[in-house]
Nucleic acid binder design. Structure first.
Length: 309
DNA sequence: GTTTTCTATCGTCAGAGAAA
DNA sequence: TTTCTCTGACGATAGAAAAC
């Protein structure tokens, strides 16, 4: 019998002629008067299998009342949603599915989207996230200082206000130079041009027309002369390698991660609450149906017994 | 009124799984 | 493979309820 291709097969009472009808053997039905017993009925399936019915959790037609006095029927059906009933077929695919379900944690987001087709929940979440991240980005991320690297391994940082140039060798910050030339630093340069000279290095800052010349330990800032255009190369901006910068970056990343995780945890808890509420509602509904069906079954049993006498 | 217990909520971490 | 997301677990904290 192909009772169910899903794991969540249920047994329900039906009065209509449906393909999968099996009979309840009368003498095996055990319903104590006035109380629910663990095993309501044992159902003989056409394939020779028996099915213990502990509870009826969904009726094919909840409002239907069986009125035929002769033989009652039980329909083996399946729910569209996941359930924990074990009355499933024993195919290998089912076993695999069950194993998957056991090994994987449930995603409340997925479960809820399955339970309710109300997609606005997720979209609302994403909207909220987007809003929050947007504000966070605006508030927390600083405008980066342009950093340039020379072929000599030195780094040059141009301060945003245009007030200073910082020169560093490798990871160590060496010197901060104030710019005395007029109008320097406005309009952040994205490309630095420099020319290598015999006594040091000269760097052209295109926007400000300033040259930094390194000669030994001394640096000078002056306006460029025409003859230095030979051997001009282009250096691309690089990230700040100083330990301070690395630490700051790490801290910033950690804060971002914590913020995101905080939000995720909040969202997860909200989803979990919603999920539990949803389950509680289902329990209430199914308990009602169960009660009704138990009463129906009891009435039918009485009817059947009376007929047999 | 004070102390203790209970409950709910939050932030963080760790780990699994998904996505890039 | 790396990065991101989700969720269980844990501890901290605050407020309510119960016990004294």
């Amino acid at each position: 019998m192909t009772e169910s291709r899903q794991e969540n097969s249920v047994v329900s009472v039906a009065e209509t002629d449906v393909p999968q009808l099996v009979s309840v053997s009368q003498h095996q039905v055990s319903v104590a008067s006035g109380q629910v017993v663990p095993t309501m009925a044992v159902v003989q399936l056409p394939g020779g299998q028996t099915l213990q019915v502990h509870s009826v959790i969904q009726a094919a037609q909840p409002s239907s009342v069986i009125q035929t006095p002769q033989m009652q029927t039980i329909q083996v059906g399946s729910l569209p949603e996941s359930d924990t009933s074990q009355e499933s077929g024993d195919s290998t695919s089912d076993t695999q599915k069950r194993r998957e379900l056991l090994s994987r944690r449930p995603s409340y987001r997925k479960i809820l989207s399955d339970l309710s087709s109300d997609s606005p929940v997720v979209s609302k979440i994403e909207e909220e996230k987007g809003e929050e991240e947007g504000t966070t980005t605006i508030n927390n991320v600083p405008i980066p200082t342009p950093i340039y690297q020379t072929t000599g391994g030195q780094y040059i940082a141009i301060a945003q206000g245009g007030g200073a140039i910082q020169i560093a060798n490798g990871a160590e910050h060496l010197q901060s130079l104030g710019l005395t030339s007029s109008g320097t630093g406005h309009g952040t340069p994205t490309i630095v041009q420099y020319a290598q000279t015999s006594d040091g290095q000269q760097f052209f800052l295109p926007g400000s027309q300033v040259v930094v010349q390194a000669s030994g330990d001394t640096y000078q800032i002056r306006t460029p002369t025409g003859g230095l255009s030979q051997g001009v190369v282009v250096a691309s901006p690089v990230s700040l390698p100083s330990p301070q910068g690395v630490a700051e970056e790490a801290t910033r990343k950690r804060e971002m991660r914590l913020l995101k995780n905080r939000e995720a945890a909040r969202e997860c808890r909200r989803k979990k609450k919603e999920y539990v509420k949803c389950l509680e509602n289902r329990v209430a509904v199914l308990e009602n149906q169960n009660k009704t069906l138990i009463e129906e079954l009891k009435a039918l049993k009485d009817l059947y017994c009376r007929k047999a006498d």
